[in-house]
């Protein structure tokens, strides 16, 4: 067997592959949200990590105060956080239409600091645990590795939301509006499409995707105010590799980078934290628009 040849126990290899796939699933959902937002708003949404964190905290609040549990939170948290994102777009980001991208980046960076700072003040920086839903407790022994049900669910749910988003963009009228709006929003509006409303909804949807990832991650990590800021830099690298604004690029690259990171952890552990950035540097040199991005 390959694993014997390499002198690596299969449990270690497949365990890391599974971990990589799970990380990749989070990268995919988060970078998908960033791609949706960048595509229509041309804004590098630095607050994305904060919205991811809000999704995780919303899961805790919804369970504690509404009593509808994890499954309800999976729907309600993205809706609530997405609506919050739409409000932010309507009252803040819209004012930056037509100005340099840098202003959007600075505003969202500031927003992230305010949101995360507020939560650190309220809940501390150490984090709060959230239990795995009882329906998904335990796992299955596959012979070569132990697969926890919840982790399998994370991959399935992430892939499902990515496919749903792809279908939304490629097979629906609203998707056609979003694609056209990415190319020429002014002309689209001159055709009678309410582009400002479309933009608000797109931002809200991108934020809701971040919150969805936050709900998924809540049972497998400590929910802490800074959990998003730790992840967001990697996610930005994934978006750059995939191609800014590319839906397909975000999903494929997200999953692939998670797996590459996992494999690197097996074969060259010291490089596992930087391998994605090395790939990003190589891609930027060879194909500046990203693997799936359109060259100007």
């Amino acid at each position: 067997m390959l694993t014997d040849l390499l002198g690596i126990p299969p449990q270690v290899l497949f365990g890391q592959l599974m971990l990589g796939l799970i990380n990749g699933a989070f990268y995919a959902v988060l970078s998908l949200g960033l791609a949706v937002i960048f595509g229509l708003l041309n804004i590098v949404n630095f607050a994305h990590g904060a919205f991811y964190m809000l999704g995780a905290f919303a899961t805790i609040f919804i369970t504690q105060y509404l009593g509808i549990g994890y499954w309800g939170a999976l729907i309600v948290a993205p809706l609530v956080v997405g609506a919050f994102g739409a409000v932010i777009e309507y009252f803040l980001l819209r004012r930056l239409t037509g100005v340099d991208h840098l202003y959007g980046l600075l505003l969202t960076f500031g927003l992230a600091l305010v949101i995360e700072g507020t939560f650190v003040k309220m809940f501390g920086a150490s984090g709060v645990p959230y239990p795995v839903p009882e329906q998904l407790a335990g796992g299955v022994n596959l012979g070569f590795m132990f697969l926890p049900w919840y982790r399998a669910w994370v991959v399935v749910a992430s892939v499902a939301i990515c496919i749903a988003t792809w279908l939304l963009f490629e097979r629906t009228k609203i998707g056609a509006y979003l694609r056209a709006g990415t190319e020429n929003p002014k002309l689209l509006q001159a055709f009678g499409v309410n582009v400002p409303l479309l933009t608000t909804l797109a931002y809200g949807y991108g934020v809701a995707l971040a919150a969805f990832a936050g709900v998924l991650v809540a049972p497998i990590t400590q929910v802490s105010p800074l959990m998003g800021s730790n992840l967001i830099i990697v996610v930005f690298a994934v978006v750059v590799i995939g191609g800014m604004g590319s839906i397909m690029g975000a999903v494929v690259t997200g999953l692939a980078m998670g797996v590459i990171e996992g494999l690197t952890r097996v074969f060259w552990p010291e490089a596992s934290a930087t391998v994605i950035f090395m790939v990003m540097a190589i891609v930027l040199v060879l194909r500046p628009a990203g693997l799936f991005g359109k060259t100007a």
Partner: peptide, 27 residues
């Protein structure tokens, strides 16, 4: 706003034609 004007029955064909490259002919 432009979308309100369009809904008053105005059709605009721009000089650069404005065909969206990410959409096919029917889209």
């Amino acid at each position: 706003s432009p979308h309100v004007i369009a809904h008053m029955g105005v059709g605009y064909c721009p000089e650069e034609r404005g065909i969206f490259s990410s959409l096919n002919v029917e889209e």
